[in-house]
């Protein structure tokens, strides 16, 4: 059987929120080490990869690997009923035809339980190679969210270029062009406010702003976002979840005609 108890159930709620605008049906893979998700959006433009280590849980038991096939809009409806400080418990039998969810709150003494029918979802697994990227940028996730949200008024495509000057986001449309430059900045005492740019060679790639905005739904999961780029390759946008896991998005670049 599978049984997992997460004291901060809100983490799981935020994970669901971070992917539900990209995919509808998803398998959560349970193993002895972790819960994980890998799925592509229906347009095959973006890939989400999530991992949450068993060490994130107060209790974790998974007798044999299983996939929980979930409909995210339904899961999201159930999580709307979860309180901010609730503990979450997940349970499934090895047959994995239903998932039990429990939201417990010691303070108010409430226990909510739900039984969710699971689906058999045929998933295409992609092999993502472990690549050494030419540019790696770490920046506050709230800044990244603000930039890609603000640039939407200028156009549909964002050019992201990493040079010695810094990291530049540009969008061009009918009304003109907008550029936002982030320079390396490690002045703040708080490490989460730092912008660090690790560049081996300059990279310039174009991406759909619509997708970059979908990815920023993961902002509440992490104060920091890590962008990794290499010429001609999909960008990696990673939101680390403390030392316990991550949500990573891969987005295929647009190519000039």
């Amino acid at each position: 059987m599978f049984e997992a108890r997460l004291a901060n159930g809100n983490i799981f709620k935020m994970i669901v929120e971070s992917i539900r605008e990209l995919v509808v049906d998803v398998n959560i893979d349970c193993s002895t080490e972790e819960l994980s998700i890998q799925c592509m959006d229906s347009a095959h433009v973006a890939l989400v990869s999530m991992s949450l280590s068993q060490s994130a849980f107060d209790h974790f038991r998974c007798d044999r690997s299983l996939s929980l096939g979930l409909n995210l809009p339904n899961v999201s409806k159930i999580f709307k009923m979860m309180g901010r400080d609730d503990t979450m418990v997940l349970k499934a039998e090895d047959s994995a035809d239903k998932l039990m969810l429990m939201f417990e709150n010691d303070k108010s003494g409430t226990i909510a339980d739900f039984e969710l029918k699971l689906m058999a979802i045929e998933a295409e697994q992609l092999g993502v190679p472990d690549t050494a990227y030419k540019c790696s940028i770490s920046m506050p996730s709230s800044e990244f969210q603000r930039i890609v949200r603000d640039l939407q008024v200028m156009g549909d495509t964002c050019k992201i270029s990493c040079t010695k000057e810094g990291l530049k986001f540009s969008a061009t449309g009918q009304i003109g062009t907008g550029n936002i430059l982030m320079r390396q900045n490690v002045a703040s005492e708080k490490e989460e406010d730092h912008v660090t740019i690790d560049m081996e060679e300059p990279v310039e790639l174009n991406f759909a702003l619509r997708y970059l905005n979908f990815f920023t739904k993961a902002t509440p999961l992490s104060p920091t976002v890590i962008l990794k780029m290499s010429p001609g390759l999909p960008i990696v946008i990673e939101y680390p979840i403390e030392q316990l896991g991550h949500v990573k998005y891969y987005l295929a670049p647009k190519m000039e005609e």
Partner: peptide
């Protein structure tokens, strides 16, 4: 406007 690439062109199915 640039054309959108398909992600499966970069990552093979396993």
């Amino acid at each position: 406007t640039p054309m959108q690439n398909d992600l499966s062109e970069f990552f093979a199915m396993v």
